[in-house]
Design a protein around this nucleic acid. Structure first.
Lengths: 332, 332
DNA sequence: CTGTTAGCGCCTTCAC
DNA sequence: GTGAAGGCGCTAACAG
C-alpha cells in the first residue's frame, strides 16, 4: 500500500480510503490511485484489514454434509442472502458427528467469525459453552431446540413426521413402519422417528415396526436394504416412512426389482422433497421442508444481528419457524 | 494473551508457545498456562496469528455448485486430504459463471490463501491474470486444460464422452443423440459434447442429433424434457447420451411415463456415476469419474506445494490424470 | 526452556 | 479531502 501511495503521490491512508466504497476521496485522486494499483498489480491484504478493524468478514457455517442432503440448498440460501454484504462463508462439514462439530466450532471461533450458523440444536457440552461465551450471533437451523443458544430458523422434525403419519392414516393405512438411522448421530432423523412414534400412539396405531440402518449420511442403498428387511420381518406392513427421500427412493426401486407394486403392496413415503422424489416413477410422497429458505432467512437474520453487534447492541432472540408440507404423490 | 500470561506468571511469548504443538515449553509451565486459559475462557486469535506469520491457513476452493453435482465429493476429498494439516477450506460457488468466478478469485486472493483449487480450465482473462501474478500454488481440476495455470488433477471430459460413444457403438447402436446444456456456461458439458461429436465422426456415425437444454446446474427435469423433444424430432434415434446422470435419470423416467422401454426403444447413458445411476431401475450406463479422488489428489498435491512454498521453493508443475471408466448397466 | 524486542499491513482517530 | 501517528494481537528472531 505504501508503494501504491508513492506511485500515486499520496499517503497510504488515502490509498486505503480510495480502495473502499463511500470514503471521501477526490475523483481524480482516486483515479490516480487506481491506475497505480493496476500498474503494480496491488491486491489489498484483507487479513491485515480484518486484524486492524477487528472484523473478520466471516460467517461460520456448519452442516452435517454437503452430499446427498438438502443442506447444500441451505448453504446456497445463505450465500444468496449474504451476497453484497462483504461477508464470506467459512464452511465446515461435521459428518453428523458432535465431536467433529465441537472441533470445528473451536477451530472456527479462532477465526473470529461475525456470525455462526449451526445445523440442528444438539451439541455437546463444551461446544455449547464455547458458543455461549463467544458473544457471536448464533443461529441454529433445521430444528426447534428446547433451549436454543441464540436465534433459531427451522421447524419441528418430529411434528413434520407426525403430519406424514396423519396423512397416511387419512389415506387408510394402519400398519405403518419407519426406516431410518439409529439416531445416535442423525439427530433430525431421530426427531422424525420420535414424531412418528408419538403419532402412532396418538392415533392408536400398532407400533414397533422400525428398521434401523447404519450411520448417516442416508444413502439410496440403505433404503433398498431396509425395505427388504422390513418385508421379511413384517410382511403385513402397509406403509413405510423413510427418514429421507433418498432411502425412500431406494425402497421404491427395491420394490420394483421384487415386482412388488407401490403403493398397492406397500406404500412408501420420504422426507425432504428432493428433486428425485418428484421425478421418479412412481413419484414419492414426501414432506417438503424448504432448505433454501432456511438458509436465506438465517442469512437475513444474521445481517440484522451483525449490524446490531457492530453498534455494540444485541438483537433480541428470534425464532423463525419455517413451514413444511406433506406432498401427496403416487407412492402413498 | 497478556492476561493469560499474567495469571500464569509467564510472558506472552510462552503462552503463545504453549498454545502450539511441538514448541518447547516445560510441562508444568504449560499446565499452568492451560489452567489460566481455561479459567479465563481465552481463545487464540488466529486472525492476528495469520497476520503475524503471513500464513492465512486457508485453501481457496471454487466449485460450480454444491447441489446436484459431484463436486461435493471433490470437496470432501479435499477436506479429508487436508485434515490435520491446519489448513481450512474457503469455499466458493461460481454458479457456472466465469464472471462470478473472477469475482470470487479476486475476493479470495485478498484473504491470502496458501493454495487455490479451481474447477475446470476455462477462466476469463482477468481471472487468469490475477491467479498468475498471485504466486499461490494453483490446481485446476476436473479437466485437462491446454495451457494450465499451475498444477492439474483431472481427466479429459471429451475423451471420456468419446469412450461412451465407443461403448454404444460396440453394443450395436448407430443413431446416437446427445442431450446437454448449451455449453456457454458448463465447460465440462461442452467438452463432453465435443468428444461425442468427434467420436461420431471418427466412427462414421450420423451426426446432428443434439438437444440443448438451458443453463446448468443440470436437473432431472431437463433430462425428461430433452428426451421428449428428442423423440419428437428424431424418432429413429437408438441411443442418447446425457451430459450428466441426473438428466439421464430424468430421461429414463420420462420413457417409463411414455411406456417406451429402455433400452429396447431407446438406450440411455449418463455421465458421472451418481449413486442414483446404480440404484434406479433400469440402472443407468454411465462414466465413472472419481470426484472424491480428484479432491483427495488435489489436496495431497497442494500439501506438497505449500511445504515447498514455505521453504521459499516451488513445486514443479504436476499433472495428475485421474482414471474414468464406462460402467455398463441396464439402460444401454 | 523462557524472555525481550520489533514488526506484520492496515485502519481509526485526530489534525489540518 | 488529505495526512501523521499509533495500535490491533500475535509470533519471528535473537538473547540468555
Amino acid at each position: 500500500m505504501a508503494d501504491v501511495a508513492r506511485v500515486a503521490g499520496v499517503s497510504a491512508m488515502t490509498v486505503s480510503r480510495a480502495l473502499r466504497e463511500g470514503a471521501p476521496v477526490a475523483p481524480n485522486t482516486r483515479a490516480r490511485i487506481m491506475k497505480a494499483v493496476d500498474s503494480l498489480g496491488y491486491v489489498l491484504d484483507q487479513s491485515a484489514g480484518a486484524f486492524s478493524t477487528g472484523r473478520s468478514g466471516f460467517i461460520a457455517v456448519l452442516v452435517p454434509a454437503l452430499e446427498n442432503s438438502n443442506f447444500a440448498d441451505t448453504v446456497r440460501g445463505l450465500t444468496d442472502a449474504l451476497a453484497g454484504s462483504g461477508l464470506q462463508l467459512l464452511l465446515g462439514q461435521t459428518g453428523y458427528s458432535v465431536e467433529q462439530e465441537e472441533w470445528l466450532i473451536a477451530s472456527m471461533l479462532r477465526r473470529k467469525p461475525e456470525g455462526f450458523v449451526l445445523t440442528g440444536g444438539q451439541h455437546n457440552r463444551r461446544a455449547r459453552q464455547l458458543l455461549e461465551q463467544s458473544d457471536v450471533p448464533i443461529i441454529e437451523t433445521w430444528d426447534l431446540p428446547k433451549s436454543p443458544i441464540g436465534h433459531v430458523v427451522g421447524f419441528s422434525n418430529a411434528e413434520a413426521a407426525g403430519e406424514l403419519v396423519n396423512y397416511l392414516h387419512r389415506k387408510g393405512y394402519r400398519r405403518i413402519a419407519f426406516l431410518g438411522g439409529t439416531g445416535e448421530r442423525d439427530n433430525r432423523g431421530a426427531d422424525r422417528r420420535a414424531g412418528y412414534e408419538a403419532a402412532l400412539e396418538r392415533l392408536g396405531l400398532p407400533r414397533g415396526r422400525v428398521i434401523s440402518f447404519a450411520t448417516p449420511p442416508t444413502s439410496i442403498r440403505q433404503g433398498s436394504e431396509a425395505i427388504g428387511r422390513l418385508l421379511d420381518l413384517w410382511p403385513e406392513v402397509e406403509a413405510a416412512i423413510c427418514v429421507s427421500d433418498l432411502s425412500a427412493f431406494g425402497a421404491v426401486m427395491e420394490c420394483r426389482r421384487r415386482h412388488l407394486p407401490v403403493p398397492q403392496r406397500v406404500a412408501i413415503a420420504g422426507f425432504g422433497n428432493f428433486e428425485l422424489a418428484a421425478a421418479c416413477s412412481p413419484s414419492i410422497t414426501t414432506v417438503s421442508v424448504q432448505g433454501y429458505d432456511i438458509g436465506q432467512r438465517a442469512g437475513q437474520l444474521l445481517l440484522r444481528a451483525i449490524e446490531r453487534q457492530r453498534q455494540g447492541k444485541h438483537l433480541l432472540r428470534q425464532t423463525v419457524v419455517t413451514p413444511y408440507e406433506v406432498v401427496s404423490r403416487e407412492s402413498a
